[in-house]
């Protein structure tokens, strides 16, 4: 770990987290597409229908519904976590603020308007609707991605569900009917429950467990009673 430090190497070192997860995302999405096509064609063969090509599969309603249902739940998770941690406290958790910090905090604490510093983002200083909007931008973007993904899941899931109904010689549903259909809610809730489980258990387990060197953990020697970044 030394000597050669070209600009490329420096870029990789400074952006390891975003690059590693980006590469992992693309690889696993490709894997999902490959495995999904095999599974889809196995189901086609089971009922005597022909195989479909890889390009046809990745543009199918079935594939889009599978991808979108996972996207929506991840962004719902981040939205709920970002918003929940504004108001809700978990005593002893590194993910929580202390009880006296609950809420949106003062302009001074948040360095907005006249309390902005020289290197604050422009919209943090601007005041008015720009600061109000910028102060909610993270939650709003998470919410927007959740809503678009969930809507996409509802449309793609509807089409895919109707394909199976037609195959089974059943009448197709209207989109509005699909929204109250068990298939839609089964796909939706199976993702929501796992996100809520993971986040809830993480926030509580991190009271007592440590991962040395991770910013998601308290320092190994920090007391169980210390909440957030307080000492």
């Amino acid at each position: 770990m030394s000597a050669t430090r070209g600009p490329g190497r420096r870029f990789i070192r400074d952006n390891g987290l975003g690059l590693a997860f980006g590469a992992g995302f693309l690889a696993t999405l490709a894997g999902q597409a490959a495995a999904g096509q095999v599974q889809f064609n196995a189901e086609q063969h089971a009922v005597g229908l022909p195989s479909i090509s890889f390009s046809r599969y990745v543009t199918s309603a079935s594939f889009v519904a599978d991808v979108a249902e996972n996207w929506q739940s991840e962004y719902l998770q981040f939205f709920l976590y970002v918003m929940g941690t504004v108001w809700l406290i978990q005593r002893g958790s590194p993910e929580s603020k202390t009880a006296d910090q609950a809420g949106r905090e003062s302009d001074q604490d948040q360095r907005v308007g006249e309390h902005a510093t020289a290197d604050s983002p422009h919209w943090a200083r601007a005041g008015g609707w720009r600061t109000a909007l910028y102060s909610r931008s993270l939650g709003l973007v998470m919410l927007a991605i959740f809503l678009v993904s969930w809507s996409a899941q509802s449309v793609a899931g509807w089409v895919a569900y109707n394909e199976t109904r037609l195959r089974d010689l059943q009448a197709p549903l209207e989109w509005r009917e699909y929204l109250t259909c068990s298939d839609f809610w089964s796909r939706t809730l199976q993702n929501w429950q796992s996100e809520l489980l993971a986040v809830g258990s993480f926030a509580v387990l991190a009271v007592y467990l440590r991962e040395r060197g991770s910013p998601e953990s308290k320092p190994v020697g920090a007391p169980h009673s210390s909440t957030g970044t307080e000492e």
């Binding site: 870029f11 400074d14 952006n15 975003g18 690059l19 980006g22 995302f25 543009t59 199918s60 309603a61 889009v64 991808v67 979108a68 996207w71 991605i145 678009v148 993904s149 996409a152 449309v155 793609a156 509807w158 089409v159 989109w175």
Partner: peptide, 30 residues
């Protein structure tokens, strides 16, 4: 140290591409 704009553009593009893909396929297949 300035954060990398290129990576922000990469992730934003990825997200937008994904969402547009959902909408296009959704519209195409319905």
């Amino acid at each position: 140290m300035r954060p990398a704009r290129a990576l922000t553009v990469f992730w934003t593009t990825l997200l937008l591409a994904g969402l547009v893909y959902f909408l296009v396929i959704g519209a195409l297949r319905r």
